[in-house]
């Protein structure tokens, strides 16, 4: 069974220890200025965002059927069996289709490098794949971010929501959005107010592409037959005309 991360904004106090732990893992500088910038970038792969008195968190959602992995022309993204969506920088040719496709605006680009690569949260695949937990989960003192089996984590989320129903918006974000994600969220407000896109379809995004792409073999076969046929007919007329002309 695949792993998942749960973020709970009711328990989150906005201490940003998750940010610091993440930056340390990626060997990125973590200054006050970076901490104050509530935006993910190639310098900061996860961020806490402030919404009045409440907080939210942005990180890669690790979709079950990720758009980035489906669109990448060189398969530089991979949804691993353990849950994390990982990036293989040695394959990337820099087309940035992953960024265009991601419904959560997650992949970041090293815009100021001469030969830039994509940066994104990898759910600490090097730990999670072997039964460990993410650096952000480890750093969180309040269990606002936890790592576990996806169904276990969902069970915990439901338990928390049942325990204090008044405090939670009655839905788990990531259960159905774009076919489900391996990062789930529970929180105090409707998720649009917590910086999450609210208009996402329940089907995974690659299904929309596949609806068109699956016709490629048909176009090739039908096209060849049709054009050969048209060619044969249009040139047959001429052959007949030439033959009749010859008889006369």
């Amino acid at each position: 069974m695949a792993k998942a991360v749960l973020y709970d904004n009711v328990l989150c106090v906005g201490c940003r220890l998750c940010e610091a732990a993440c930056s340390e893992k990626w060997k990125l500088p973590y200054t006050d200025e970076i901490a104050g910038t509530e935006k993910t970038s190639a310098q900061k792969l996860t961020t806490i965002t402030t919404h009045g008195e409440k907080f939210s968190r942005k990180l890669c959602m690790h979709c079950i059927d990720p758009a980035c992995a489906s669109v990448c022309p060189v398969a530089a993204f991979e949804k691993t069996a353990a849950g994390p969506v990982v990036y293989h920088p040695e394959k990337c040719m820099g087309c940035r289709y992953c960024m265009m496709a991601c419904p959560f605006q997650v992949p970041s680009y090293e815009w100021n490098e001469r030969l830039p690569l994509v940066k994104k949260c990898d759910m600490c695949a090097e730990r999670v794949s072997f039964g460990g937990i993410t650096h952000c989960s480890e750093a969180c003192p309040f269990e606002a971010t936890i790592t576990g089996e996806r169904d276990e984590v969902i069970a915990i989320a439901k338990k928390r929501m049942e325990a204090s129903p008044g405090e939670y918006h009655p839905a788990i974000y990531g259960m159905e959005e774009v076919g489900g994600t391996s990062v789930l969220m529970i929180g105090s407000e409707p998720y649009e107010k917590l910086n999450m896109p609210g208009n996402l379809p329940k089907e995974s995004l690659p299904t929309y592409t596949w609806a068109a792409l699956k016709h490629v073999p048909d176009v090739v076969i039908l096209g060849t037959v049709l054009m050969s046929g048209v060619y044969w007919i249009t040139h047959r007329r001429e052959e007949v005309a030439a033959a009749e002309g010859g008889e006369k």
């Binding site: 990448c72 394959k91 592409t209």
Partner: peptide
């Protein structure tokens, strides 16, 4: 790396 799609395949990708 523009030649990468020649050897690194992803048939699900429109690109």
């Amino acid at each position: 790396r523009v030649w990468h799609p020649i050897i690194m395949w992803n048939p699900r990708s429109v690109m």
